[in-house]
Design a protein around this nucleic acid. Sequence first.
DNA 1: TACAATTTTGAAAGGGCTTTCAAAATTTTT
DNA 2: AAAAATTTTGAAAGCCCTTTCAAAATTGTA
Lengths: 328, 328
Amino acid sequence: MNIYDIAKEAGVSISTVSRVLNKKENVNEETRLKVEEVLKRYDYVPSGIARGMVSKSMKTVAVLTVDVRVPQYARIAYTIEREFSKRGYNVQLCNTGGDLEEAVQYLDIVTGKQVDGVVLVGSIFNRIGPDERVASLLKHTPVVVANGQLDLPNCYSVLVDDQLGISLAVEHLYKKGHREIFYLKDMDTDSAQRKQAGFLETMKRLGLDGKAHIRETMFGLQGGVQAVEQLLDSKAKVSAIVCGEDLTAIGVLKGLKRAGIRVPEEVAVTGFNRSEYAQVCEPELTTVDNKAELVGRLSVQLLETLIQKEEHYASMVVQPELIVGKSS
Amino acid sequence: MNIYDIAKEAGVSISTVSRVLNKKENVNEETRLKVEEVLKRYDYVPSGIARGMVSKSMKTVAVLTVDVRVPQYARIAYTIEREFSKRGYNVQLCNTGGDLEEAVQYLDIVTGKQVDGVVLVGSIFNRIGPDERVASLLKHTPVVVANGQLDLPNCYSVLVDDQLGISLAVEHLYKKGHREIFYLKDMDTDSAQRKQAGFLETMKRLGLDGKAHIRETMFGLQGGVQAVEQLLDSKAKVSAIVCGEDLTAIGVLKGLKRAGIRVPEEVAVTGFNRSEYAQVCEPELTTVDNKAELVGRLSVQLLETLIQKEEHYASMVVQPELIVGKSS
DNA sequence: TACAATTTTGAAAGGGCTTTCAAAATTTTT
DNA sequence: AAAAATTTTGAAAGCCCTTTCAAAATTGTA
C-alpha cells in the first residue's frame, strides 16, 4: 500500500492524500473525511524513508559510547535519548567498546545513513580526532562530545570540570583533618589526566606533597582491592584515598575491610561519578556527582542548535558537586 | 554531491558509478579506477536514505526498554546492539519508562520509519498486547519480546524460566537448613507473577507453607529496607529472605545490618538477576543469573530469521542459574 | 449576470539511489 | 574476414513521498 493506492481508492490525487496526511488546512472537509476513512481502513502508514528522502533527514541522531552497561554511560545515554525523543528524534545507540577502529566504522555507517547529528560520550573519543578518515566523515555532520573534546570544524563540547571535582574531594578530606591523602589513578583517558592534575594542583595549594601520593592501578573493583594491598605492603602512612571512579573506590572499601581497617575511622575513601553503586556499598560512598543528566541535556540542546544551523554555538563546562556519604 | 555529479565528473553514467560503489564485477578495471579516484577526491558517501528507498530497509531495528539505566536492561540492550551491529544493523534505543502510551508512540514512530524489526525488552510489554493500535502497527513488522510474551501474529518470545529461578533459590536455602523462608514481592509484572508462583510451588513441594511467607513491598533499595522493618515488627520467625530483584535484596541486607542481624549466620538473603550490585554489596549476594546476554543473543538470532522470512521460528525458554555468594 | 477573489484539486517535477534491459564495444570462434 | 559470444556501458523506470504551480471549482462582489 502506498500513497497512489490510497489516492486511487479514495478517488483523489496523491497530492490530496499527502495534504490529509500532513494535516494541511486547504482540504475540503468532505474530501478529508473520505480520505481519512480509506487511510484508517487500510491501516496506512506513510513511508518514513520516502519522507526522509524528501526532507533529507530521518530525524535520527547517533550516540556513540564505550559501553552502555557502564552506569555512567547508561545515565547519559538515557538522558540524551529522552531529550531527543521529546524533540522528535530517534537515537541510534553504538557501543564501541573503546575501540577506535570500531568507532570509525560506526561513524562511517551512521553518517552514510545521514543521521542528523552525532553525540560522542566520553573523553576516549578525543582520540579519534587525529584519524584522517574522521575529519572527512564528520565534515557534513554536527557533532557534540559529552565529557570530551574534538578539534574539528563541526564539533562542540560539554565538559565536566574533573579537575574541580577532585579538588572538592581533596579539600573535603583536608578539612576533615586528613593529610596523608592518596590518589588512585586507574585509567589513561584525558579525563583521568585532568583528575590527576586536579589532585596535584590541590595538594600543592594545601601545602602537601601530591606527587608522592599518586598510585596507579587497574580499572574496576579488582584494581581497588589490589591498590590497597600494595599500599599497605609499602607501609606508607595512609589517612585517605581519593579515587577517580566509584567502582575503584568500592574495591578499595573491600580491600580495607579485608585488611580489617575501618572506614571512615581509620581511612577515608572517596569515589567519582556518583554511580548507583555509591549508595549500595557499605559504608555509603562519598563521591563526586559528575552531573550526567545535566551533561546529557546540555549536549542535546547544543546538538539541536547545531542541527538547525542557528548561529551561536558554544562549548560548555559543567561544575561537579561533592556528595558526602559515610566513607569520609 | 550526488551520484549524477560523480558520474559527470568521471565521464560515465550513473549506472557505472553505482556498480563501482557496490563493487560489482562487470566493470572495466580502467573505468573503475577512474571512478574511484573521483569518489575519493570528493569524499563521496552515497545517501543511505536513497538506498533505503530502493531496498525498503534502513537496516535498523528498534529496541524498546523501560529504562536503560537499569543494569539488567542495559546488559540486554548492549548485547542486542552488539549482535545486530555484527549483522550490519543499527539499533534505535527507546526508553518507555514503563508507560504504555509512550510505548505505543515509539512503536508508531519507528514502524513509520520502517525499522526492519522490533525487540521489546521486559514482561511489562505484555501489557501493550491488548491495545488495539498495537496490532495494526505491528502487522508488518517482526517482533521479538525478550523476557516477555505478546500474542500477536509476528511476535515471538525469548523467555527466562523465572519460576525455575526462584525454585533454585528456595531449594538452595532448604538444603542449607532454612525452613522459615520468606518471599518478597516487589512488583506486579508478569515476571513477578511467575516468580511468586515458583515460590509457592517449591514451598509446597518441600512441605512448607508458602502463602504465609509472602510479603509485599515497593521496588528498590528502600522497599527492601522497609520490608525488613515490617518483618521484624511482626515478630515472625525468619531464617531466609528470597527477593525477586537484587536491588531489593540489597535493601534487605541494609535493613538487617541496621537491625544488627548478621548475614548469613542469622538470616540468609538471595536476589535475582545477577546485577553488578550483587558483587558490590556486603556480603556478596547469592543471586539468580537470568542470562541476560544469552537472552539478548537469542533474541537477535530469532529476529533476524523473522526479518529474512525464513520459515522456522520458535519461541524459546532459557534456564537461569543460581550463583551462590556469601549472603546464604 | 459577469467578473474577481478565494478555495480546492491535480499534474508533474524532484530527491538519489538500484536495477533491468538493450545497445555498444570488445573478444573469441569459425 | 565474418559471425557469434562475451564484456562493458548507459538510458530509463521505479521506489514513495513532498512541493510547486497552474487549472478547476466555488464563493463573493459589482
